[in-house]
Design a protein around this nucleic acid. Structure first.
Lengths: 322, 322
DNA sequence: TCAAAAGTGTTATCCTTACACCCATGT
DNA sequence: ACATGGGTGTAAGGATAACACTTTTGA
């Protein structure tokens, strides 16, 4: 059936499964056994067209197998095919093409949904995603690591007179008075990678001119190209929040408006204006009151709301254009 | 090297190469030799990682080979992996995964750029894209074919009580007073496909309850899943016009504002308000006057402009939010 | 009565949309 | 002079962003 005169290509499917707990965005990882540093991986596996009719079915199957977890919304991100960047240990194939997916775990308690066997077998767990991208969390203001470590190192990298480097830096990192664009997560990671400032670049045999102490500043590394897929997932999710009501997949059935705002803030990595956020939610008719109030955490009790699924039919692009 | 116990997968790359002539968006096609009906194809070929380091390099290489054409901007659209939908004639592989790309041909005279040999060999030519999607051109008002043929047939398809069908129809085709969303090209094509109203659905062995006379109303067919890739390309291009200055890749170096507007209208498939369009162009500082005026086509001579490449550095998302 | 968090009112500004009119050229 | 397309001014309405203040609970 298979002929040996053709290059043998395998399709790898990787999923960035997002969850949420205590205003912290989480990402589902598995751990290579006996691993040291930088061995976090996204759940992934080979696509076998004989077993699964579509990519999506294959993906759901092995997220289920590796984490014992059901996922809700799934969407394709990007297919990475370049040589060298993400070799995977598959002796059957000469070349692995990896298709990245964004997936959302359903409900408010993702960690409890991981099955005990899966935890044993694959070391599945949810990790806060800002562990991998510390410079993407602006909720408490501009992260110090940017001005103290990242930008100086990036400036040095771009100081060779190559103007395109300087231009890309300017746009991705909001230099010269530009506003920080929370969606450019991938652009920023790619620049750090090219500058040799993240661990993966060294692992891939790149010219790394900086000592490994730098890697402690640039977040936890992942195996293969999984951190790149995660960056793509965060970019996409942040973009899509603005015109699709995806947040509600990550919330419980009932929630207060403040909880909703904190969740959006956690995902977008920035602080939002309370009144304007509420006006936006109301204007888009995204929620309806349940009539009950929450057990408060010290203060005035808050009204509880639920997602109005009907908006999906009413408006073409319901979201939170913040 | 290759082992015969694994399913053999091939990667197919397909490109939707967009050009423009006389306010008509064009798409580069090749023709199967001795072909009858529905044999238009996008330029495509297998990805061989031994010959090309990245997808994009492979893609450029065989667009060059099949059409003798240089392409400018290239971006990945989507990777289609579902069985049955797009079998391709490759005896070396059990399954073909197809990665679709959007590409823009450079300059104002794409047809002249096709080499004579390529035309002979592969029948390469540029076709108006609305030939494949007649219902997407609203420049002269709402297309008659919608109310006369497509919607009645779609209503019949959705009349089985399945509410999700009705909901999807409503959003994709702007029923019940919703506004037509020019970006939902793929959604609309997929609905027509599922309803068995396009030729490809019949070719794929689907249950086609309607006579083939309908196919004359639903545009020219393409081989494999190429029309789906084209629909994806148009969707993406229309979306991206709004926040990236892609139009200028399809224009000559100098142009009048009316030419620019007509071009955007051709791509977006709808009429734009003249003054507001001009204000938008000016507000975003997308162009600068050359100081010269055009040889007019009967009327007051128009000022000529050129694209201000600097905007790419000045603003994060320069485009024509129309 | 005070801390903590929920919830509201109001204004200045900008952007969008639409209106209608004038200008420069060839025939 | 008039047809043809180029080019502009202006005002209404809505969306946005920022201001600061009141309300309801638990301790």
């Amino acid at each position: 059936m298979a002929r040996s005169d053709a290059t043998n290509i395998a399709i790898g499917l990787s999923a960035a499964v997002v969850g949420l707990k205590d205003q912290t965005p989480l990402i589902l990882t598995i751990r290579a056994d006996g691993a040291g540093d930088g061995q976090d991986m996204l759940p992934f596996g080979p696509f076998d067209p004989l077993r699964h009719r579509t990519f999506e079915l294959g993906l759901r199957a092995f997220v289920e197998a590796q984490a014992g977890l059901q996922i809700g919304h799934v969407e394709q991100l990007y297919t990475f095919g370049d040589r060298g960047r993400h070799a995977q240990p598959d002796d059957k194939a000469d070349h692995v093409v990896s298709v990245g997916y964004l997936a959302l775990s359903r409900g408010a308690a993702p960690e409890d949904a991981i099955s005990a066997e899966a935890l044993k077998l694959s070391g599945a767990s949810f990790q806060p995603w800002y562990v991998y991208f510390p410079w993407e969390d602006w909720r408490a203001g501009r992260p110090d690591v940017l001005d103290q470590h990242l930008l100086p190192a990036l400036f040095e990298w771009a100081s060779d007179g190559d103007v395109t480097k300087a231009e890309r830096l300017k746009l991705a990192f909001a230099l010269d008075g530009l506003v920080w664009d929370d969606e450019r997560v991938l652009d920023r990671y790619e620049l750090l990678y090219e500058a040799g400032l993240v661990n993966e670049a060294a692992a891939d045999g790149r010219d790394s001119r900086l000592v490994t102490a730098m890697f402690a500043r640039t977040g936890r590394a992942m195996r293969y190209d999984h951190r790149r897929i995660l960056a793509t997932a965060i970019s996409r999710l942040r973009a899509k929040l603005k015109y699709r009501p995806l947040v509600f997949e990550l919330m419980g059935d009932e929630f207060t408006l403040t909880e909703l705002q904190k969740t959006v803030e956690a995902l977008a990595g920035r602080h939002l204006h309370k009144q304007n956020f509420r006006r936006l939610v109301e204007a888009n008719a995204l929620v309806e009151p349940t009539g009950t109030t929450s057990v408060q955490t010290g203060g005035r009790p808050a009204q509880l709301f639920r997602f109005r699924r009907e908006v999906l039919l009413e408006r073409p692009a319901p979201g939170l254009r913040v």
